[in-house]
Amino acid sequence: MTDPSVPAARRPGEQVLAALDIGAPNLSPADASPHTFPGGGRWRTEIPSCEGPEALAVVLKEASRLDVPIHRISQGSGVWMLTDTEITEMVEAAAERDIELCLFTGPRGTWDIGGSTRTDSRGAGLRARGHDALAGCVEDAVRATELGVRCLLVADEGVLWTLHRARAAGILPAGTTLKVSALIGPVNPAAYAVYEHLGADSVNVPSDLTPAHLTEIRRVSAAPMDMYIEAPDDLGGYVRMYEIAELIRRGAPLYLKFGLSKAPGIYPYGHHMRELTLATARERVRRGRLALDLLARHGADTDMAPLGSRLPGTLRRFELPA
């Protein structure tokens, strides 16, 4: 419910443009998402591409320095690119700050021997090719959760459904959340609803979706949405900071992901990329500060979900096989 004592958020440049008789049309209440996170709040934050304990330490230090609230930290290279000691260190560091840690399962199609991913059509992209790749993703999921990880990032519909079934069967902890990667993110409401039914607890949509697309999705699904406010170049390099308030209004419950454009790719990470990885980790937090400052200037920084909250609420699922 909106607090009547809180001033209404304004759009960028609204007062000046209205004074010049070129104000924007009124926002339609019918466009706004009616959904929130369980426990309250319409948005959470995520720092992506945090590739190991050292990068995580940099992110946590910079977040404290710049006062950037963080709900989730995610990694992109994959569980198999980390030792047990590194995973445990990351789990413990995130737990100390009550931040959800999300690690990517693998292997992925773009890194195996499949030639179709290197054609102009990109073939099946990151999806898990064959039974062995599916088994590798399951192995990653079991190993990570046994070490205390409670959020898994997936880039394949079959992997998602398999891990959801494993969670329902008690093979994975019941509180494990499953996040769909932007690299296979849905671009229409029917596809978004399918991912929810397959077991997704949050779904990363491509950053080129329009506000109207988000409204269309919210008419069929309340599953939390992830969106790069600034996307890496391989995902388009879009920078949508001035749209954050409208993206929240249309897409809530929404994770604001602070990515980084104009930066070299770092997957799969190794120590040969250490300086770049630490520098870009630090800059992602700074980008988060810039985005949150914009929200504050526009009076739209209310309704953040409580720090430490991570669960998605009750979602709709396909019936599990007997």
Rank of each mutant, 00 (worst) to 15 (best):
T117A: 12
P12A: 12
D301P: 05
L247W: 06
A322M: 11
A55W: 02
V138H: 04
L254M: 13
L27T: 06
E275I: 14
L172V: 04
R219M: 07
C151G: 05
T2Y: 08
G175L: 05
L295I: 06
R287S: 01
L101A: 08
A223K: 04
E54W: 04
A222M: 01
G114H: 13
P48T: 04
G175W: 03
S261E: 00
A30V: 01
Y269S: 00
L66R: 15
D140K: 08
T88D: 06
L134F: 09
R143F: 05
T302G: 11
W43T: 00
E319H: 11
L235W: 02
S309K: 11
G199L: 10
I99R: 01
Q75D: 10
L315C: 08
D132F: 07
E89Y: 05
E89K: 15
D67G: 02
D233Y: 07
W43M: 07
L307D: 01
L278H: 06
W111D: 09
G259N: 11
G76C: 14
E243V: 03
P264W: 04
D156A: 07
G308Q: 09
Y228W: 10
Y238S: 07
K262Q: 14
T280F: 07
T302W: 00
C137R: 03
A193Q: 14
L290N: 10
Y267E: 00
D201M: 06
S309N: 09
W43G: 00
G39Y: 03
R10H: 08
T83N: 02
I113N: 03
V180R: 03
R97H: 15
I99G: 02
F258D: 07
W111E: 11
P224T: 01
S309Q: 11
R118D: 01
I229K: 06
V138S: 02
Y242H: 14
L183C: 06
P69E: 07
A57G: 11
D233T: 09
T105L: 05
A8C: 01
T215P: 02
A174T: 15
L183D: 00
L209I: 04
L295E: 02
V194G: 04
D201W: 06
D3Y: 07
P232H: 11
E100V: 14
P173M: 09
G308A: 10
Y195F: 15
A135E: 09
P253F: 06
S202Q: 07
L160M: 10
T210C: 06
A300L: 05
V79Y: 07
P186M: 09
R287M: 14
G288L: 08
R97A: 13
S261Q: 13
G299Q: 06
L276I: 11
F104R: 15
S202G: 01
A200L: 03
V58L: 00
R219E: 09
Y228I: 03
C102H: 02
C137M: 04
A32E: 05
A57T: 14
A166W: 14
V205E: 02
L183H: 10
M1G: 02
V239F: 09
H271N: 05
A291F: 12
L307W: 06
F37L: 03
D84I: 02
A296W: 01
R297H: 12
T119D: 06
Y267S: 12
D233V: 09
D208I: 10
R10C: 00
I184S: 02
L66W: 09
R127E: 09
L183P: 05
G23P: 03
P69D: 03
R42D: 00
G13H: 08
T215S: 15
E157F: 01
L183A: 14
P306C: 10
S116E: 14
E283I: 03
R143G: 04
